[in-house]
Design a protein around this nucleic acid. Structure first.
Lengths: 111, 111
DNA sequence: CAGTAATACCTCGCGTATCGAGGTATAGGG
DNA sequence: CCCTATACCTCGATACGCGAGGTATTACTG
């Protein structure tokens, strides 16, 4: 089961940075890690994954390091200091937004 | 403060349908209701609001009723049966996805 | 009474996002 | 020898967010 596409945006960025805050990982690995750490609630296709990683790198939040393992090329990504700062910010954004949505779902007459 | 734009999508649909599940409301009213029921975490601009309402109506989830109050035209929206069904579905989607994200934020090594 | 805010609706267009589909290449098992 | 898994990538259609602009009425304020 895949998430309703319209609910997906921006979340991949959050999840990628969160995973890379723990340790460096490569693209293919990240895709499977997102699937498992979200309890199979979210899958990020490769058509989303790689463009997002490139964007995050261009913005200076990730640093890429290429290396070859078993004849296959892997691109390992790690968080920069700016990336860590950005992760903190969008994590707070996420908590505020998801908290707001949950409040609205409980009681639309709130406040 | 406004939500980071990339985290916003699809949420407006969920919040609009949720509010209209309680009672019929008009566009301008819905915008302010979203702001207050989400504890000021989320604002939906008019450039988003009206196109979304038209889309939801076109899909048969909302029914529109125009009327004039104090010389101003209001378009009241109410949920159809299909809209109620759809709300149930995207509410479940939301819980699954936000639960998945929260799990990943807690422990990226999960599973 | 002029000016501005508030109410209430709407569209256009830029930039950006999603994501399936396709492409390349290697390693390994049946 | 082919198929699957690994591992990277791009392209193009579609869709979305959202600021900016447009119209029109009522209500407040100096």
């Amino acid at each position: 089961m895949q998430a309703s596409s319209s609910l997906m945006s921006g979340i991949s960025e959050l999840l990628l940075l969160r995973l890379l805050a723990e340790r460096q990982m490569y693209g293919y690995e990240l895709a499977r890690a997102i699937h498992s750490t979200t309890r199979h609630a979210i899958s990020v296709g490769e058509g989303v994954l790689y463009p997002v990683l490139h964007t995050l790198e261009r913005r200076g939040w990730l640093k890429a390091r290429r290396c070859t393992v078993n004849g296959r090329t892997r691109v390992y990504y790690s968080l920069t200091r700016g990336g860590r700062r950005h992760l903190k910010k969008i994590t707070q954004d996420w908590r505020r937004i998801s908290g707001g949505v949950d409040a609205a779902l409980l009681d639309p007459k709130y406040a």
